[in-house]
Nucleic acid binder design. Structure first.
Lengths: 224, 224
DNA sequence: CGAATAGTGTCTCTCAGACAATATCGG
DNA sequence: CCGATATTGTCTGAGAGACACTATTCG
């Protein structure tokens, strides 16, 4: 009996709390149970586990992975009733404003109040959330939960939602500035009955990889 | 054709530089080539990937995993000539003074001057080293490269070897003290033609998990 | 006592966070 | 002008790192 090889994706958004995308399973085993988007690796079309996860994300959610990284691999004899199985779990982040399109059938649930999940998916979600919160302390990861353009107060609110505590405005701006991460969008500003905020976007050079700070933004959190 | 499921272990020690344990392959494919200790997951005896890695470590090196954690999973159609394969890679740390026993057939190589390796193992080693160096900045991970008992100057030298730069003695001791990680071994001290150093050991409570600092020990390094 | 290494006290300079002043919008 | 939010300047206290002093061993 060969080992079953799957990938799963913990797709997260912030709206306004951290939420995870779940899908009711449409077949046995555990038909109807809520589960992460995922499925078997296809040896004939996937170049690696990340590509398999991107394919899964596209197929099940219609989204073209904005941010996608490998999380960890879960395996064992009991997690799937069909036999010894492996799941290469991934984390994906999507800005809330992209959710309008393509979200057919997805059910979003706050990560702090999850229903029962199929297999060991609750554990996978927990580890994904811990990873995201941990990386939020020292990297630019949260920008991938903002849209293409955003203001600094918006970005700070995203960091605060992930870290679970208010941040000092001056320090936060110093950090972001030190990262040399953003560039202002000239002329564009947000409206409202008050002073509008400057809009920013990621510098081209920063699109691919995360940028790290050399000082933490918040208190230490358990790293996965 | 099912996907091949394997685990590999990047076993590292410090002696006095960071070195990785390699084994010449004893069978096809790539018989004779240097490779990481690893092998197929056995669905009938392994409880999960970590247990498979521990079994592999015991079988191929005789060591009972002192520190072992999952690193990442590598997979694709080309990395093993036998077909689409998955390797759940792990990192293990062992104090240099445990190497006397059980190291039959292991070849130790400095990680900064590796020979050609089989499969994609060079990439796996590189990622493992990056992970270890990154975690050395903000956690107690390096204590697992020391023996059961050690002095603070020894521990500082281990951190410095991993981080690649000298650390401030006063700050280093402040950090270690804040972590509430160690307890002195009363009465025992190291000898020499000079003042002997206090011996320390991990507090029981700290055996299992890593302890984190809330400030970094060195400058930021790329996190895996 | 001198050499060598271990351990500690202290000073300074940097920087994180608090506070507050200024800027810019709509009404 | 007023209310509201954005942005920036300044001050202060905590702490990291530099430096140097004390401690302890052997010869």
């Amino acid at each position: 009996m060969p080992i079953l090889c799957t990938v799963d994706v913990v797709l997260l958004t912030l709206n306004p709390q951290l939420q995870v995308a779940l899908l009711p399973r449409d077949r046995a085993p555990l038909a109807g149970a809520l589960a992460l988007p995922g499925g078997f690796i296809h040896a004939d079309e996937d170049a690696d586990p990340l590509a398999a996860a991107a394919r899964m994300l596209r197929a099940k959610t219609g989204l073209d992975c904005p941010y996608l990284e490998q999380l960890a691999t879960f395996g064992g004899p009991g997690r799937d009733p069909r036999g010894w199985s492996i799941s290469v779990a991934h984390v994906a982040l999507v800005p809330a404003d992209l959710l309008a399109r393509g979200a057919a059938g997805l059910r979003w649930h706050p990560v702090d109040a999850l229903p029962a999940l199929a297999f060991d998916h609750a554990q996978i979600v927990a580890q994904a959330v811990a990873r995201v919160r941990s990386k939020s302390q020292y990297s630019s990861l949260p920008v991938h939960l903002c849209g293409e353009r955003f203001t600094l107060p918006q970005l700070q609110a995203v960091y605060e939602a992930l870290l679970g505590e208010p941040l000092n405005k001056v320090s936060f701006r110093r950090r972001i500035d030190e990262m040399d991460l953003l560039e202002p969008i000239e002329g564009e500003r947000t409206g409202g009955a008050h002073r509008p905020a400057q809009l920013w976007r990621l510098k081209d050079r920063r699109r691919g990889a995360l940028t790290l700070t050399d000082r933490l933004l918040g208190p230490a959190v358990l790293a996965p």
